[in-house]
Computed example of a mutant assay.
Amino acid sequence: MTKQQKYCALAFAALLVSGCAPKDYSFEDDGAFDPIEPINRNIYGINKVVDTIIIKPAAKIYTHFPPPLKSGLGNFFNNLGEPSNIINKTLQKQGDDVVTSTARLVFNTTFGLGGLIDIADTMDIEQTKTDFGQTFRAYTGNDGAYLVIPIFGPSSIVDAPGLAAELVASPNTYIENNTVRYSLSGLNVARVRESLLETGELVDVAALDEYSFVRDAREDLRRKTVPTNVWGDSENFWQ
């Protein structure tokens, strides 16, 4: 076993052992649970380099796209996310949101030119976003140790498997043409990164410790968006 393999094995073992915070652990009092902070900081640094060299420049190019094109692409990628929303809202027992996401998918795909036009929004059918990470935490009751994933960035030991599940649920994954699939993925990354350009500039200026700032902000946001009452009675599904 090489040194790199041993390093990865030790990191994985540390996550398994310390994946869940102690019972008396409090985010408000103790901050994010980050037992492998040195490893996470190193990965964060590598991601920062990749972002500076590749992703951020792509996002800046995307800012020059005509507004109508950007709007259409945003609608298209939001529509691609509806199957994941439907699956997760079902698992979270959010019956009304399941109906809403299904209606949005049907109307926007059929009448909105494959999702380029948000027809559902004009009908006051608003999108409710969620993901597999939120679903996993709703069932486990714990977000687990903070984890920085190469390229994907801030996550947790509970959220990380959700990334794989999101790929499986995404229609983009099943496009056979590699050029089309990779082009769509690249466009979506640039689109999402563009929305964070101003936030990133504020972090660069305001944060004394950028890593800690991003980690704590992410953890605080996730705690505010995790669904509750997943283990409720079946008759409470339609709420």
Rank of each mutant, 00 (worst) to 15 (best):
S18L: 10
G19D: 00
C20D: 13
D24P: 12
D24G: 11
S26Y: 08
S26A: 12
D29A: 15
G31H: 02
A32S: 09
D34V: 10
P35E: 07
E37G: 13
I39L: 14
I39D: 04
I39V: 14
N40Q: 06
N42T: 10
I43D: 03
K48S: 15
K48C: 10
D51S: 12
I53C: 03
I54R: 09
I55E: 08
I55S: 07
I55D: 01
K56A: 11
K56M: 12
K56F: 08
A59T: 08
K60C: 06
K60A: 02
Y62I: 06
T63G: 07
H64K: 14
P66H: 07
P68Q: 00
P68R: 02
P68K: 06
L69C: 09
L69G: 02
K70S: 14
K70N: 10
K70Q: 14
S71N: 13
S71F: 07
L73I: 14
L73P: 00
L73N: 04
G74D: 13
G74F: 09
G74Y: 09
N75E: 07
N75W: 10
N75P: 08
F76K: 02
F77M: 02
N78P: 02
N79S: 06
N79F: 04
N79L: 04
L80G: 05
L80A: 13
E82H: 06
P83Q: 01
P83S: 05
N85A: 14
I87G: 03
K89Q: 15
K89D: 15
T90S: 15
T90E: 02
L91K: 03
L91V: 06
Q92F: 03
Q92D: 09
K93W: 12
G95R: 01
D96H: 11
D96C: 09
D97V: 13
V98Y: 00
V99C: 06
V99E: 06
T100H: 01
T100E: 07
S101L: 05
S101E: 04
T102M: 05
T102G: 12
T102A: 15
L105W: 11
V106R: 05
T109M: 08
T109A: 06
T109N: 14
T109V: 04
T110L: 13
F111R: 04
G112L: 00
L113R: 08
G114M: 03
G115Q: 00
L116V: 12
L116W: 09
I117Q: 12
D118M: 10
D121R: 13
D121K: 14
T122E: 14
M123K: 12
D124R: 13
D124W: 11
I125D: 03
I125H: 11
Q127K: 15
K129M: 11
T130Y: 03
T130L: 09
D131W: 09
D131E: 09
F132A: 01
G133I: 04
Q134R: 03
Q134L: 00
T135E: 00
T135V: 03
T140G: 06
G141Q: 04
G141R: 05
N142W: 01
N142I: 00
G144T: 03
A145S: 02
A145Q: 04
Y146M: 03
Y146T: 02
L147S: 01
V148F: 12
V148T: 12
